[in-house]
Simulated scan of single mutants.
Amino acid sequence: MPDAVSSITVFTPRYWEFLNEDEPPEEDLAEEFHEASKFHRVTMGRETNGRRLQADPELSRSAAIGARELPHLPRIPLPAIDTEREGGDHPALIRNASCRDFTTEALPVEQLGRALWLSYGAYPKHESAAPPARRPVASGGALYPLELYLLADVSGTGRKGLYHYNIHDHVLEEVHDEVGEERIRRMGAQPDLLASAPAIVLINGLFWRSRFKYRLRGYRFALMEAGAVIQQLTLAAQSLGWGAVPFAGLFDDQVEELCEIDGVDHSFLNAVLLGRPR
């Protein structure tokens, strides 16, 4: 079904319609992988295995290093980095540690809008310019397959609502005027953290935008782009004096139901929790 964005009609077909096929292919590896890798309340326990770190000292040591070393190869030393000076010279490029302890203070809607614009907004804004507008992140083919949704109190009423970020008009479109705390807590693991975050940015992928051109590779491009948006958003939050934590421990079906998306062609990818550090 088409929907209007500004004066431009935007269609959201399934990607296979661009392949001149009447039906989707019987085997879609990207779709099968995406579905198999979703978190659900009843399956999350078997999809994660944190206990193995404690049971396997060698795995724990390797995971703590988080980098590969090739000592058998010749080495060329690089000039030493003065971390204190570099941090002062390039504060916007050095991300703070993740924050998981927020105050209850709502974030100003003006600053929320700025954070969204800095992470995935359209710029520069020209009234006569047609999409695709430039964005703060690189995108395969400039196809921009992501959509951002904001779960926050933007009205000052103390009630959190869910809003879609319309990047071309730089407005929030109201999906739900109120989302109760209990529903937020049920959305994923660590319910106390979810409920305490003053704002949650949900990053969803509209995969056909990449896949009609890049097929299976287009799915990977969407994931890469989501990572770039997370980095932009956490750095934007830092510049505003906020804390932030990327948070993927959400139940896909709960997020997709809340956002009123189908979970197949348009599906949840990741989230970032925002707030003022306690």
Rank of each mutant, 00 (worst) to 15 (best):
S196M: 13
S267N: 12
W208C: 10
V42Y: 06
F18M: 02
L59Q: 09
G121A: 05
Y120M: 04
Q232F: 00
T43Y: 06
A237E: 02
R51F: 07
E182Y: 01
T234R: 02
E173S: 05
A142N: 11
A248C: 11
A152T: 04
V201C: 05
E21C: 14
R75S: 14
V175W: 04
P246H: 08
D177L: 04
Y15Q: 04
P25G: 14
G180D: 15
L70M: 07
E147C: 02
Y163V: 01
F221M: 06
I94W: 01
E182T: 08
P246S: 08
R52L: 13
R278T: 10
H266D: 12
V109P: 04
E110M: 07
A36M: 03
L112T: 07
R220L: 10
H170N: 06
P2G: 05
G275V: 12
G249D: 12
S239I: 00
L233G: 02
E58N: 07
E35T: 09
E181Q: 13
L73H: 11
P132D: 14
A133P: 04
C99D: 04
H34E: 10
L194V: 05
R114F: 00
D22S: 15
M1P: 15
D192F: 13
R85G: 00
V5D: 11
F207H: 15
D262K: 12
E257D: 14
A80H: 12
P132Y: 10
E69G: 01
S60D: 14
E181D: 15
E178M: 08
D22W: 02
Y214C: 08
A106I: 06
Y120E: 02
Y120H: 09
R217D: 12
T12S: 15
R185E: 15
E147A: 08
V42T: 01
L53M: 12
Y219S: 13
V10M: 15
E110R: 08
A122G: 12
P71I: 08
Y123I: 03
I184P: 10
D3I: 11
R52E: 11
A142I: 12
M224G: 00
L193T: 06
S267M: 07
A122W: 03
R159W: 00
E225V: 02
G188H: 08
S119F: 00
L273M: 15
I184G: 07
S239Y: 01
T157H: 05
C259M: 06
A189V: 11
Q232P: 04
P145E: 14
E181R: 14
A244P: 02
N204S: 14
H266C: 15
G45N: 08
A133L: 15
R61N: 09
H34W: 09
E47V: 06
R276D: 03
V175L: 10
H170D: 11
F39N: 13
P74N: 07
R61C: 03
D252I: 03
I200Y: 03
D101C: 02
E174C: 15
D56A: 14
Y144V: 09
E110S: 10
E110V: 13
E178L: 08
E181I: 09
T103N: 01
L250I: 07
A106R: 12
A195R: 09
D252T: 14
L216W: 03
G161S: 07
K38I: 00
